[in-house]
Simulated scan of single mutants.
Amino acid sequence: MTPAVYLVDDDPDVLESLSWMLEGLGIAPICFASAQAFLDQVNLSHPGVAVLDIDMPGMDGMALLEHINAAHSPISVIMLTGQGTIALAVKCIQIGALDFLEKPVDGDKLQSLLTLGQQLSDRDWQALQQQADIRARLDSLTKRENEVLQGILAGKMNKVIAAELGIAQRTIELHRQNVMTKMMAGSVAELAAMMNMLVSGPVN
């Protein structure tokens, strides 16, 4: 899925000039005149790059950035700022924006940031897809298979897991095989890596 490019600014002249600039670069942006309009129409679970004006009536750019972060969205965010709001722009970077641009926007820098933003967004989106896939595999395990999974991750031998659960070692071996098959793991190390991805997570 190719990450979309969104422009969010309450100034129609800015939207028009940025759209014209991006179209000249072969990019077709989707424009919004407010943060709320963006939220009403954009699926935050999809990849994309959002160029947000900081100073907007109603929900401003920082509030929108925080909303995107709270949704654990893979969307990368670039902030737009006018004179006098550099400190605010820096704060936006501290809470997750990729970078900020001063108006009037430098086309080369914007293009470079959009390219980086699309790459990062696509990476994060793919990681989120992997996480969802792993969770689905986990959900397919029975209660007993989950218990065996915890024993495997703890590095316990089959006979130890069998003793702790009070069942035959052969039964543990069958459960272990089912766990590895359902989780699509070729080794315990691969299984552990899957669990670590769920715990750490690459997004936000």
Rank of each mutant, 00 (worst) to 15 (best):
A162L: 05
A154K: 15
D11P: 03
P3W: 05
N69K: 15
E173D: 14
G117Y: 11
S34W: 11
G201K: 07
Q130I: 10
I172F: 08
L25F: 05
G107E: 15
L64F: 11
V51T: 12
L149Y: 05
Q126T: 11
V188W: 02
E173V: 00
S140I: 03
M183H: 07
A71H: 15
Q119E: 14
I152Y: 09
E190K: 11
I161D: 03
E145I: 06
G61L: 03
L191T: 04
G58A: 07
L52M: 10
A37K: 13
Q129I: 05
S76G: 02
D11F: 09
N158F: 10
M183V: 08
K103G: 06
N158Y: 09
G48K: 04
A189V: 09
S73R: 06
D10W: 07
D13P: 01
N43G: 00
K156C: 01
Q118V: 00
F38W: 09
I78V: 15
V188T: 12
C31F: 04
V105L: 09
A4C: 06
M79G: 02
A87F: 05
S45K: 15
P104V: 13
A185Y: 02
P74R: 09
A192R: 15
P74M: 05
H67L: 00
D55L: 08
M184E: 14
M197W: 03
L165P: 07
T181H: 13
A193Q: 15
A127C: 04
M183S: 07
V14L: 04
I167D: 06
L101F: 03
G24T: 05
S140C: 04
L44D: 02
Q111E: 14
D133P: 01
N196E: 11
P202E: 15
D108S: 11
N178W: 07
L191M: 00
C31M: 10
M180Y: 09
G82P: 05
R170G: 01
L191P: 02
C31P: 12
K156A: 08
I134D: 10
D9K: 13
A168C: 06
D13V: 13
L141Q: 05
G84A: 08
L64Q: 10
A168T: 15
A127D: 14
I152K: 02
L7P: 05
V8T: 11
